[in-house]
Design a protein around this nucleic acid. Structure first.
Length: 285
DNA sequence: CTGCAGGGGTAAA
DNA sequence: TTTACCCCTGCA
């Protein structure tokens, strides 16, 4: 496979993109690059100076898949400029995570991945998703000494007992995954149909699934259904919003509504900069 | 070394 | 509104 190199590309830092909490299948390598799986393909991403090097792909695949996946046609410079206006907190958060981009991920994979994320920590979530892919997914290829597997299709989770799903990192969420996969298969669910709905209907649609509540539905909407006005409030975002904006203990739903009103159609981007800032700087600890 | 508290969204009591 | 869920990490 060839490489694709984009020279002097702004607003793209693999560390920021892959460690801002939106994805679980990209692993940092010893040389500082990241290798990951998406859309049944394996890719390595490395930043060298201002150039981005995409390995294990070719021009056609890059244009047909990765270009959209990395949201390369969105102008993040403009988004950041807008967020910085009259907001010294966002000004700093945007500087800190200046290379973040919101990936366009697969809705089914996000649904299951964020069910796993509830009451769980990122290394555990990554382990769970990896083990489930090895157990139920399709082998893709060997790459630099590792074997890579696609994210499993819904029916694969139904091939055995509920407890079979309970690999390390999954725990009590096994039944949520089983129930969600069953509903998916039985009702021939097409999550892409939710794309055209307004935010409240989209959220309602997602919360039909077992293990999906307010926070998880916001994540699925933001990371896979183009709802860039979503604002998932997890423990870090709660802390950072209270610390900088609200100055008192505040209900999660109130924080979500306040933030979506404040940041408008850029809420999702704001959430990513704030999450990354809060987590790396341990705000409120 | 061993043991135990801490952490984290959702469902269900 | 409170509690249980699972399992790794960190610290005593």
């Amino acid at each position: 496979m060839e490489k694709k190199i984009i020279k002097r590309f702004k607003d793209f830092d693999p560390v920021h993109i892959f460690e801002c909490g939106q994805c679980f299948r990209w692993v940092r390598q010893e040389d500082g690059s990241f290798t990951g799986v998406a859309g049944g393909k394996v890719l390595n991403v490395k930043k060298e100076g201002e150039d981005i090097i995409f390995s294990n792909t070719d021009e056609e695949e890059f244009q047909n898949f990765w270009r959209n996946y990395f949201d390369l046609d969105t102008d993040y410079g403009k988004i950041k400029e807008e967020l910085r206006k009259n907001d010294s907190v966002m000004d700093e958060a945007v500087d800190f995570g200046q290379g973040i981009r919101i990936l366009k991920q697969d809705p089914w994979e996000m649904l299951i991945s964020f069910i796993i994320s509830a009451n769980n920590r990122i290394p555990m979530i990554m382990r769970g998703v990896k083990l489930l892919s090895e157990k139920y997914g399709e082998f893709i290829c060997d790459f630099r000494g590792e074997k890579y597997y696609s994210f499993p299709a819904p029916e694969k989770f139904l091939s055995g007992e509920i407890s079979d799903i309970r690999v390390s990192g999954i725990g009590f969420r096994d039944k949520y995954i089983y129930n969600t996969a069953s509903k998916f298969v039985d009702e021939k669910i097409d999550l892409d149909l939710l794309r055209n709905k307004d935010f409240d209907d989209m959220k309602k649609g997602l919360m039909q699934f077992s293990g999906v509540g307010p926070k998880v539905s916001n994540c699925i909407a933001l990371f896979s259904l183009d709802a860039l006005d979503a604002f998932p409030v997890d423990t870090w975002v709660k802390k950072v919003m209270e610390y900088f904006y609200l100055h008192e203990d505040t209900d999660l739903k109130v924080i979500e509504d306040f933030s979506r009103k404040k940041f408008g159609k850029l809420s999702g981007y704001a959430q990513q900069y704030l999450f990354y800032y809060a987590r790396e700087k341990k705000i409120g600890k």
